[in-house]
Design a binder for these strands. Sequence first.
RNA 1: GGAGAGGUGGCCGAGUGGUUUAAGGCACUAGUCUUGAAAACUGGCAUACCGCAAGGUAUCGAGGGUUCGAAUCCCUCCCUCUCCGCCA
Length: 429
Amino acid sequence: MLDIKYIVAHPEEVKKRLSLRKPELAAQIDGVLEKYSAYKTVLARVEELRAKRNEMSKSIGKIKKEQGDDAAKEAMAEVGKLKEEMAVKEAELDPLKKEINDLLLSIPNLPNEHIPVGVSDADNPEYLPCTTPLPKFDFKPLDHQAVGEKLGILDFEAAAALSGSRFALFKGDGARLERAIISFMLDMHAKKGYTEVLPPVIVNEDILIGTGQLPKFREDMYELVGEPKQFLISTAEIPLTNLNRIRVIPEAELPIKLTAYSSCFRKESGTYGKDTRGLIRNHQFDKVELVMLSKPEHSYQMLEIMVSDAQEILKELGIPYHVVELCSGDIGFSSAKTYDIEVWMPSENRFREISSCSNCLDFQARRMGLRYKNAQGKLEYVHTLNGSGLAVGRTFAAILENFQQADGSVIIPPALRPYFGKDKIEAKK
RNA sequence: GGAGAGGUGGCCGAGUGGUUUAAGGCACUAGUCUUGAAAACUGGCAUACCGCAAGGUAUCGAGGGUUCGAAUCCCUCCCUCUCCGCCA
């Protein structure tokens, strides 16, 4: 969330930058400022009353000890009167505080000043062009679902029978390939100094507030029945970023680099009819995630490193991709700056998102109290970054589409062969 | 799920209703001393919020309650440890 002090000190700048995401966001800032000034007025009175009460209570103790219980009666009656106003004012305080906090929690991060201005993904400029040659086919390439079903390694009918639409079932070489991709990615990242983590996929409510899924995006999450409120994670970013919450991180530990494979669960509400075929947009999917905690002065540098670490996977696999920079209208709620890596999908004749790498600055850290002690000995919020490294199902799909052969078989990229055990998935006779 | 024990500052740990600030120790840090270091001694040392400041308020796992006053008493919940049950 944004720093209330910063909003108070720079209201016009905050409004201007937020309106680059969406013009109507600026109005929310006025609401916050109004509530905050009311809150301060009440707070000042409450603290004044409390100070008076504390002072008198102390003197009551003193009087009782020195002069006996009866001597204190007058003072006790007087404090009793104070308590009436206190009760009234205190009752006003909490709702105001909660309102301000709720407002702040639902306001997105300020976009970085230098990111391109725009309203949708159509306005995202290319940041790095594709350098891997696009595959050439002397036949009409199939989409990955058709390739997978013909090979008998993907079974969407079976998945639908078990779980409904938007689920996938991997079988035989398919299941094995998915697992190979996961291991390959984790090993690559481990070599680059990321610590591998295997986190829980069920988390508590406050964890989701920390990374920004709650309170605003509850309808995207699978919520479990019962108390305490718990949710299936929609990305491993959630447990990884929250891993060090409410802790003061020793400066020497920064930057912290984490990677995790996890299943991810998303309701995908509001995406009816969109990307309904195949592995592109499912309720449950596999992803290898990258998370970094960095000192503020290094976070943009770390973002470049993260994007390059994620690209490394595609370079090794030989899958064509390019990188785009998201415009102000397209970056996510918590992000100040985001790069998307997009892979080439021959069946669609276009690039498709496979990774999204974001610098969230102190936006998430403030929500979860994640700080470190800087060189001056002052506590300061760390910056958090997250990125896919990569979406496993979409990588699977890209391999099937880019490396399919005329006979229906699929060549396995050399880098994956030690994990997969074979150099191709044979077509059925 | 059941029984018992516990949760206090960066760490250890005292503290079962009141007289200025949660004792003491460790760690850290500054100074004195010293050629330098160690030791010793002296001082500093939580966080957040309000306030121009002086200063104030809050926080002892969380949330409620009792009281003029709560780390301390009461209620609910969470977590950790030990044992039992169940289970991969």
